[in-house]
């Protein structure tokens, strides 16, 4: 029942956008993304849950069911998930123009902040205290990277699929030992995965 409703609301984006895309809507779109992006620490999922709260619960512009599908699309595309989610929300509410506005709103705050940091970085880094803190942080980042590696590789190996495990080992060896181009590795693994998906779907059809 629920998914049926989601599909119904999802099928009328054009009608919705025509009704709502006035100046006030566009301003709200930009402002919301700008504030959320500028005030949210901790990346990805945190920003997405803030966007959901604002657009679904407060403004009620998108239904909860539809927003789940939109986030799934954002996750399936390359790029930054928070940016992708804001693109698709903007598009859903006000078409391509809306998408451009939400992307600008999401990208501007970090861009401004990092431009300032980048300009001051050299002086900032030459301060002895800052240099020591940043040196200490290198160890913290190393710990975070080991932790993420353990979690992600663990999740792949837990499935106990020979092919996934082999792909993991071969891809890591290709990058680390043979200095293979990362993009080449993604393309090769993507092709393997595409073939497997295609075979799965064909099997599912004949069954």
């Amino acid at each position: 029942m629920e998914s049926g409703q989601a599909i119904q609301t999802a099928s009328q984006p054009a009608a919705q956008s025509a009704r709502k895309a006035d100046a006030h809507t566009l301003w709200t779109l930009f402002k919301t993304c700008f504030i959320i992006s500028g005030c949210t620490f901790g990346g990805g999922m945190v920003i997405i849950s803030m966007l959901q709260k604002k657009f679904v619960e407060e403004l009620k512009w998108i239904s909860q069911e539809e927003v789940m599908d939109l986030v799934a699309i954002a996750q399936s595309c390359p790029g930054v998930m928070a940016v992708n989610t804001s693109i698709i929300i903007g598009y859903r509410i006000a078409g391509v123009g809306g998408a451009l506005l939400t992307v600008a709103g999401t990208v501007l705050p970090p861009m401004i902040i990092l431009t300032i940091i980048s300009t001051c970085y050299v002086q900032f880094r030459s301060n002895q205290l800052v240099a020591l803190i940043l040196k200490g942080m290198q160890a913290g980042v190393a710990a975070v990277m080991i932790n993420v590696t353990l979690t992600m590789s663990g999740n792949v190996l837990k499935k106990k699929e020979v092919l996934s495990a082999a792909m993991l080992v071969c891809a890591a060896a290709a990058i680390l030992l043979f200095d293979a181009d990362v993009i080449l590795v993604i393309i090769v693994c993507g092709c393997i995965s595409g073939l497997l998906t295609w075979r799965h779907m064909k099997e599912a059809k004949t069954r």
């Binding site: 590789s153 999740n155 792909m167 993991l168 590795v185 693994c189």
Partner: peptide, 13 residues
């Protein structure tokens, strides 16, 4: 989903 092993390998690298 099939790309997960490749992503894990890149994080490892």
């Amino acid at each position: 989903n099939g790309l997960h092993p490749a992503v894990a390998a890149m994080v490892l690298a």
